[in-house]
């Protein structure tokens, strides 16, 4: 393919990601994801007739949790707690931005 060609992307969230796609996108093993899903560490994630589907937000969460677990040898529940707090921080920062206060 030539570099000059124009690429047309598809928007995630309108397509959703499968478990394997999410695992590939955040460089984790699918088993790591399955284990964390079974333990309920991914809230707001749904499975439709046994098939998991993930939004773009789940991608950020998976990367964060894996990073906390690896860097600090944290247990998954602690990494999930940190991810919860970071998500609240994101939401609070977005509200400040919208109010023009950041």
């Amino acid at each position: 393919m030539r570099d000059e060609d124009v690429l047309i992307g598809s928007l995630l969230e309108e397509t959703w990601m499968t478990l394997e796609q999410l695992a590939a996108a955040c460089a984790v093993e699918p088993d790591w994801l399955r284990h964390h899903l079974d333990e309920g560490l991914f809230p707001h994630t749904e499975s439709v007739s046994g098939v998991w589907r993930f939004s773009a937000a789940a991608l950020t969460r998976a990367r964060r949790m894996r990073r906390i677990e690896r860097d600090f040898e944290a247990v998954p529940e602690l990494a999930a707690l940190v991810a919860d707090l970071l998500e609240e921080l994101d939401a609070a920062r977005a509200r400040l931005r919208r109010a023009g206060l950041d």
């Binding site: 690429l7 992307g9 598809s10 928007l11 995630l12 969230e13 397509t15 773009a56 937000a57 991608l59």
Partner: peptide, 8 residues
């Protein structure tokens, strides 16, 4: 914002 565009 925050949405992900996938280039297969």
């Amino acid at each position: 914002e925050g949405q992900i565009i996938r280039l297969a």
